[in-house]
Nucleic acid binder design. Structure first.
Lengths: 241, 241
DNA sequence: CGTAATCTTGAGTCCAATCAACCAATGTGG
DNA sequence: CCACATTGGTTGATTGGACTCAAGATTACG
């Protein structure tokens, strides 16, 4: 049974088989949770770290007038706040966008990984820095691109991220999002998302139907969005650094 | 001479006088740089870490069509990529918004801080996590709020951040930004920023003139923006954790 | 003091929001 | 097994916030 966290970290660092085994072991405490429930709520002080093994989750905030903004998608292999215990309380919530399989990891295990396994520590650092870079790119996306390119850009990012954990099938992937959820992510209304999706479909770029996204020509989609993958930092470092 | 990094980290962790002295020492290698120059460019692989001692900088990206998005402000006490050397190359640039005073810190010094000074390591972790939280809040800001509240919200954030490093004078602070730069930050055109600034001024909320922002009534401004400061994580943790 | 940068104003346009239905699929219970 | 409710997707008409273009007023500064 492949472990998505191992797959993800391996894209950056060659993990020893011992490190890989360590990850397998700490992610064996599996739970299941239903779509629509919250893994963590704003104001919580979580005592454990969650690893998303299967399914989709998101970080989000709800404003006083009820509007919601999703700030990040969590995909298989993603950790929820591997250092959350440094802060006093959560400043946002983490909700499940689909039924999900989750591993609970104790704080001690995470600290052990950081202090006793340099390769893992480096890889977890890398993961945090990629999260930072991804948030910055989302700001660019929402701040500068129109709805059409904004949504298309997000689709490319998700495709790349899922591919690194082996969850794409050519240009096809599971995406359990409603158009309303896409809207909450991109700062758009569901109605407008709908119209844009129709244009993307008509242009032969993507179709999203019953939880599956199909990208007939990923190269063309990347051209349309001027996608620069550098912010995902998937290229290995040079040796010796 | 107060050190803004010490001030910033002290807001989270009680630093020993020895830790404080260590920061003083590693930030003694001071340089001066002119407004408009880049500290780091996209594609660079920086070998040192920069500490902004005085002045303003920003993280930004330029799109293929020339539009620019600023994703973060760097204020006195902020470090540029204290772990940048984990990644292969910069995915964005850091430019100076004002003349600035900068300390260059070698990679070794930073690593030493992480490995030999637990309190400092924790404080630097905290700083990174606050950067993450701030990026998330900017996504909410740009994604959900209209221009008026968006700009006002950003002003409150800057006021709080500068206050923690002792650089506010009541409701007044130095803000060396043009309206065009505010626009690049908030995903707005300079023309629209101008009109919004006039409304903010007319409403008695803020005035920005010749590099100085004046907030007559910070409480009222926070009410208007529904400002929730939790994402800045300025409250001390409970003891014993 | 003159030039460039910044700020300001006005008119017209457009992208996306709003409001309000309607349709299609799904699923559930009687 | 079908009536009906719910959710998600679609459509149309209208409104509005922000952009564009273009020019003029101010301010900063060498």
């Amino acid at each position: 049974m492949p472990n998505p966290l191992v797959a993800k970290l391996s894209s950056f660092e060659d993990l020893s088989s011992d490190d890989a085994r360590f990850i397998y072991e700490i992610s064996s405490n599996i739970h299941f949770a239903k779509a629509g429930t919250d893994l963590i709520k704003e104001g919580d002080r979580p005592e454990v770290v969650y690893l998303l093994v299967d399914g989709w989750a998101c970080r989000y905030k709800v404003l006083s007038d009820g509007r919601r903004q999703i700030m990040a998608y969590l995909l298989p292999g993603d950790l929820c706040d591997s250092h959350g215990f440094i802060l006093k309380e959560m400043d946002h919530s983490i909700g499940l966008l689909s039924d999900a399989k989750i591993a609970r990891i104790s704080r001690e295990k995470v600290l052990a990984a950081f202090s006793e396994r340099p390769a893992l520590a480096r890889a977890l650092w890398w993961s945090t820095l990629v999260d930072l870079a991804t948030l910055r790119e989302w700001i660019v996306n929402i701040g500068q691109r129109d709805a059409y390119h904004r949504i298309a850009h997000m689709f490319v990012e998700v495709w790349i991220r899922l591919r690194t954990v082996g969850l794409t099938d050519g240009g096809s992937l599971e995406m359990p999002l409603t158009q309303a959820e896409v809207g909450d992510t991109m700062g758009l209304t569901p109605v407008h998302v709908n119209r844009v999706m129709q244009r993307l479909r008509a242009d032969g770029l993507v179709t999203l139907r019953s939880g599956r996204l199909v990208i007939p020509d990923i190269k063309r989609l990347m051209d349309v969005t001027h996608f620069e993958a550098n912010y995902l930092h998937l290229d290995r470092r040079e040796p010796g650094t």
